[in-house]
Design a protein around this nucleic acid. Structure first.
Length: 602
RNA sequence: GCGCCCGUAGCUCAGUGGAUAGAGCGUCGGUCUCCGGAACCGAGUGCGUAGGUUCGAUUCCUACCGGGCGCACCA
């Protein structure tokens, strides 16, 4: 039991004595007072006002003298409606640093609250390379999986590769028509980029065809929806793509062969992209293997009267209880759509992985889709439907405007990492102080810095919100950035090493108590609670924030006081080193949770 | 038109209904005989508007203004 927990028990007892009111210790929330001179912990007495039938001010005043007598408490004051508690320094330091001295404090949820969680994220289409949107998804999904795992859940990270469909055929068709047998080997190009170029080429050729057609039709200005449809209905290219998809679904061997070849190029490219980003999965599903799955569910639902057949022959699910039009689940020609596949997918996942909860990391533009999906699964009678979550995140906008993949106006994921590395290398070489690092070490550090820059840049923003990606700012290594955190971590480790002192050997903390030391201590004390909160809120941004505050707090201490050099009293040096070692561990913990490497030297 | 989300400092973002709303960047000014300056400190400007609920509202509710995203037999 931590000091905070013991104090909660004591406060609960004091409340019971003074007011004969029950306040369970678990409900006591210790906050930090706005100004450290007021105390170390604050308890707002507002929730007690009703049950005690007193004003919060009076309650605080009544509790203060009794709390002041509690062991470990140095002072307890009423400040208006707040009860402020100042802790005995040596006890608080010993309690908190003791928990950090051998490892991390255990902040996992109690066993009965741990769940088996399937977390689906990334889910790229194999018609083009990954871009900035995928990068945000990958980083959020990966960060979330680390956070949930650390909270004690059994997490299964799942990727679903969208490797079939009309969009895939577009790249294939373009390559077959104009590719002249190019391969990743012949061009030296990464496979996903090569295939992506053909996707863009298809879009260009289609636009050319459309321009010719429009001119022939005497059409001018911006195309209307009707004109678009009219064009597509007679388009040569569009027809060829549709034919190719039919061939694929019919199992035409030549088409399948081309599909297998090009997909393998893309997937090999993705392997590199993921490896570079430090992203991994426990299970990878391919849509080509499971796309037929949903039909059975729909037919079953139809037989049971959950779904209906519309006039056109399509199978629909009525949604009047959501105030929506019926949702089509099978087209009138009997083919499946996105929703159909997702139904089958969810059922299959439950069968195969047996999750308590499943979380889909997918952009906010699909909120409606998931709302409907979960609702339909509920209608089918699956109780677990209510334990499905759409972890919705906002779009990534560029300072230069909106991303449009068909126009090629995207930030490519590989290019981004490449540019970040270049800029990190530049900064490293400009700075004079570099220790003698080998080329390999340098390359590793540059890689780690670039990863820290992009991951932290993404994670510190609340996921739900759209974010603005500013290449300039993301490259910046100073201020509230990932590299700053790595720098702070490396500096802490370096201090501990150079001091030659053993942090674990320190048993007493009677000499610590400077404001900067106490501020850092407070961050360490609150750390487990903050991480638990971040996990329960599914909010990696909270991890990012707390980690930054911790690093900054240490920088302040470092700047205000010598840690060991020029410290006269060896006992004080040892105690400060123990504090530094604990802070390094916490910082490392935060970086780990964000999937950011924590090199010893940068 | 309907639904969901968002409007906080010049910019990018934090902020469980509670004490004096915080960071980073940028601007200006400082610190250090420095254990790693990718550091630290200081100055300056702010809750879209109007109501309501509450002892107390940036936070909850309503309306309005401004922006984003959805509302496919696309994915």
């Amino acid at each position: 039991m931590t000091l905070f927990d013991r104090l909660a028990v004591e406060l609960s007892r004091v409340v019971a004595e003074q007011f004969q009111v029950e306040l369970p210790p678990t409900q006591i929330q210790w906050d930090a007072p706005p100004d450290p001179t007021m105390g170390d912990l604050a308890f707002g007495c507002f929730p007690l006002a009703k049950s005690c039938r007193r004003a919060p001010q009076q309650i605080a005043a009544a509790l203060a003298p009794a709390m002041a007598r509690v062991e470990g408490v140095d002072r307890a004051d009423a400040a208006g409606p707040y009860l402020n508690v100042r802790l005995k320094r040596d006890l608080w330091f010993a309690d908190t640093l003791g928990a950090w001295s051998t490892g991390l404090p255990d902040w996992r949820l109690p066993a009965e609250e741990r769940r088996r969680v399937v977390l689906e994220f990334s889910c790229p289409n194999t018609n083009k390379p990954q871009h900035l949107g995928h990068v945000r998804n990958n980083i959020l999904g990966d960060g979330l999986s680390r956070l949930l795992k650390a909270a004690g859940h059994d997490v299964v990270r799942v990727n679903l590769i969208n490797d079939r469909g009309i969009h895939i055929c577009k790249s294939m068709l373009a390559w077959r028509k104009w590719g002249e047998g190019q391969t990743p080997e012949s061009t030296g190009q990464k496979g996903d980029h090569l295939v992506g170029d053909y996707y863009v080429l298809f879009a260009r050729k289609l636009a050319e065809e459309e321009a010719v057609w429009r001119a022939a039709q005497g059409l001018e200005g911006k195309a209307t929806d009707e004109e678009k449809r009219a064009f597509e209905a007679q388009s040569q290219l569009q027809g060829e793509v549709s034919a190719m998809l039919r061939d694929w679904e019919a199992g035409d061997e030549a088409t399948l062969e081309l599909w297998r070849t090009m997909n393998s190029w893309v997937l090999r490219g993705y392997d590199q992209t993921y490896a570079r980003q430090g992203i991994a999965f426990d299970r990878v599903f391919y849509e080509s293997e499971i796309w037929r799955l949903g039909k059975g569910e729909v037919e079953d639902g139809l037989a049971r009267g959950v779904f209906q057949r519309s006039e056109s022959g399509a199978v629909v699910c009525p949604l009047e209880d959501l105030g929506l039009e019926p949702k089509v689940l099978l087209r009138s020609d009997g083919t499946a759509i996105y929703m159909t596949q997702d139904l089958g997918n969810a059922v299959m996942r439950q069968r195969e992985l047996g999750f308590d909860e499943m979380i889909y990391v997918v952009g906010s533009e699909q909120e409606h889709h998931f709302r409907v999906l979960f609702h339909i699964l509920g209608r089918l009678g699956y109780g677990w439907a209510e334990r499905l979550t759409h972890f919705s995140y906002g779009m990534v906008n560029l300072t230069t405007g909106k991303m449009k993949s068909r126009e090629g106006r995207v930030v490519d994921a590989d290019d981004l990492l490449e540019e970040l590395e270049e800029s990190c290398r530049r900064v490293m070489e400009e700075s004079q102080k570099r220790l003698d690092l080998s080329e390999e070490e340098k390359a590793a550090i540059v890689h780690d810095l670039a990863l820290a820059a992009v991951k932290y840049f993404v994670l510190k923003v609340t996921p739900r919100l759209d974010m603005l990606y500013d290449p300039e700012e993301s490259i910046d290594l100073a201020g509230n950035t990932g590299p700053y955190l790595q720098y702070a971590h490396a500096r802490m480790g370096s201090l501990v090493r150079k001091s030659g002192l053993d942090p674990a050997a320190v048993g007493s903390f009677d000499l610590l108590g400077e404001p900067e030391e106490v501020e850092l201590l407070a961050h360490l004390s609150f750390w487990p609670r903050e991480m638990r909160l971040a996990a329960s809120q599914l909010n990696p941004a909270r991890v990012a924030q707390r980690t930054y505050e911790l690093a900054r707090s240490f920088s302040r201490l470092f700047n205000a006081h010598s840690i060991f050099d020029r410290v006269e009293d060896p006992r004080l040096a040892a105690q400060r080193i123990a504090l530094t070692a604990a802070a390094a561990r916490a910082l490392r913990c935060g970086l780990d949770l964000m999937g950011i490497p924590a090199p010893e030297r940068i």
